[in-house]
C-alpha cells in the first residue's frame, strides 16, 4: 500500500511538472480523456482491488464465535489497566497482561470511567474501551516474550502514562505463571 501510494504520488507530481515545464505536452490527449482516464479509470483500477483486499483482510481479523478461544477481560480506568481471567477463577492482575503464546485470545475490553483504547502495537489493531459497552478484540502472539501496550484514546491528565506490559508465556507454563503473578501482586498489596 505504501509503495502503491508512492507510485501514484510520483505519477501525479510528474504530470504536474511536465504540463508546466513542457507546454503543449499533454495537449495531444483530449480534455475529456484526461478526466476519464485520471478521474475515473485510475481510481477504479486502484481502489476496487484495494477495497476487496481490505474487506477480506478485515474479515480474517474478526473475533468470530466459532473457535471460542480463551478470554481475558481488560478494564480501563483513569489511568491504569486491570486484567481479569474468567477462565482462571477470580484471578486479576494490574498493569500486566499475561497470555499464552501460539493461540488466539479474546480480549473483552471495557471501561469504568471515560473512553480508553486498548492497543498492543506489535500484536494487533486497537479497540476502544467504551463505558457501558464491552468490545471484543482477538489477538494472538506467536512468540513468548514481553510486549508493550498503551491507551491510545485521549483519556485525560495522565493519558501518556497509561501503559501496560504484555507477558506472553509458553502455553504449558501459562496457568502457573499467571497464578504466580497474581499471588505476588496480592502479597504486595498487603
Amino acid at each position: 500500500m505504501l509503495a502503491g501510494s508512492a507510485i501514484l504520488f510520483l505519477l501525479v507530481m510528474t504530470l504536474f511538472v511536465l504540463v508546466i515545464r513542457r507546454p503543449g505536452w499533454g495537449s495531444s490527449v483530449s480534455p475529456e480523456r484526461w478526466l476519464v482516464l485520471g478521474g475515473l479509470v485510475l481510481p477504479a483500477v486502484v481502489l476496487l482491488p484495494l477495497i476487496a483486499y481490505a474487506m477480506i483482510a478485515g474479515e480474517r481479523l474478526l473475533p468470530l464465535p466459532g473457535q471460542a478461544p480463551a478470554r481475558i477481560e481488560a478494564i480501563g480506568r483513569q489511568w491504569a489497566w486491570t486484567f481479569r481471567y474468567p477462565d482462571h477463577g477470580a484471578t486479576e492482575t494490574k498493569g500486566v497482561l499475561h497470555m499464552p503464546a501460539g493461540a488466539p485470545v479474546d480480549i473483552l475490553v471495557s471501561s469504568q470511567d471515560v473512553i480508553h483504547a486498548f492497543w498492543i502495537p506489535r500484536l494487533a489493531g486497537k479497540i476502544d474501551a467504551v463505558p457501558g459497552h464491552v468490545n471484543r478484540l482477538r489477538i494472538q502472539a506467536d512468540q513468548p516474550g514481553r510486549y508493550a501496550g498503551q491507551c491510545s484514546e485521549f483519556c485525560g491528565l495522565d493519558h501518556a502514562s497509561m501503559r501496560f506490559d504484555v507477558v506472553v508465556h509458553r502455553p504449558e507454563e501459562f496457568s502457573a505463571a499467571l497464578a504466580r503473578a497474581a499471588a505476588s501482586e496480592g502479597s504486595q498489596k498487603k
Binding site: I51, A52, M55, E59, L62, L64, R136
Partner: peptide
C-alpha cells in the same frame, strides 16, 4: 453492495 457479504454483527 459488497458489504452485505461480510459478517453482520461482529
Amino acid at each position: 453492495g459488497p458489504p452485505l457479504l461480510l459478517t453482520a454483527c461482529i
